[in-house]
C-alpha cells in the first residue's frame, strides 16, 4: 500500500485489492456496531463487551493505515488491559441491581441524542469541506524508524510518560486502598 499511489479504477471483488476493501468494510461495520453497543447497552458488562469489539475494529483500521505496531499495541493495551480493568471494576463496584443504566438528568433521552448529533454533524461537515494539503513522504513509517524516533527525537517524552504511568499506578493503589478497613 504505497501512500502516493491512489487506486483510481474500481477493483473487482475477487482481486487482492477488492478483498482488502471488503475486509475493511466488514471491520468498519464492526467498529461502528461495537461503539453503538458500548454507548447504548443497558448493562455495563455488555457495554464493556461492545467496547472490546469496537477496539478490535479500531486495531484493524490501524493496520489498514500502515501501522501494524500501533495495531498490536491497541490490542495489548486497550483490549488486553484497559477493558479487563473496567470489567474488574464492574465486578467490584457495581452490584447486580444497579447495573441498569436508565436515563436520568436533563441531557438524557432525546436532548442528549440531539447534543451528540450536533457535534457529529459539525465534525462530518468540517471533514467533508476542508481541503487537506498532502505533503510528500520523507520516510516510510516502519517499526524501525518508529523506534529510532522514540529513542532520539521523543526520548524526553518517552521518559516523562514512564514517570506519568508510574505515578498513576501508585496513585491508583493509594486511592483504592484508602478507607479499606471500613
Amino acid at each position: 500500500m504505497n501512500p502516493s499511489m491512489a487506486i483510481t479504477e474500481a477493483p473487482g471483488l475477487l482481486t487482492a485489492d477488492g478483498l482488502t476493501g471488503l475486509i475493511f468494510l466488514v471491520m468498519m461495520a464492526t467498529t461502528i456496531i461495537g461503539g453503538i453497543i458500548a454507548c447504548c447497552a443497558k448493562r455495563l458488562v455488555r457495554a464493556v463487551a461492545g467496547l472490546i469489539v469496537c477496539f478490535i475494529g479500531v486495531a484493524t483500521l490501524y493496520y489498514f493505515l500502515n501501522s501494524p505496531f500501533v495495531a498490536m499495541m491497541q490490542m495489548l493495551i486497550y483490549v488486553g488491559a484497559v477493558c479487563i480493568a473496567i470489567a474488574f471494576a464492574i465486578m467490584l463496584a457495581a452490584p447486580e441491581e444497579s447495573q441498569k443504566t436508565g436515563p436520568s438528568g436533563p441531557l438524557s433521552g432525546p436532548l442528549g441524542f440531539i447534543t451528540a448529533g450536533i457535534v457529529t454533524f459539525g465534525l462530518l461537515v468540517l471533514a467533508s469541506r476542508t481541503k487537506f494539503t498532502v505533503f510528500p513522504k520523507v520516510s516510510n513509517g516502519t517499526v524501525k524508524e518508529l523506534g529510532i524516533q522514540f529513542l532520539t527525537s521523543y526520548s524526553m517524552v518517552f521518559e516523562l510518560i514512564s514517570i506519568v504511568l508510574l505515578v498513576a499506578i501508585i496513585g491508583a493503589l493509594v486511592i483504592a486502598r484508602a478507607g479499606r478497613s471500613k
Partner: peptide
C-alpha cells in the same frame, strides 16, 4: 468514522448515569 465514534462517546457521556459507563464513553 472517527466523527461517528466521537458522537457515540459524547452520547454515552451525557446519557450514562453510572461512573463506569461514562468512563467507557470517554474511551470511545
Amino acid at each position: 468514522l472517527a466523527a461517528l465514534l466521537f458522537g457515540m462517546g459524547i452520547y454515552g457521556l451525557v446519557t450514562r448515569r453510572t461512573l463506569i459507563g461514562m468512563l467507557i464513553a470517554s474511551e470511545l
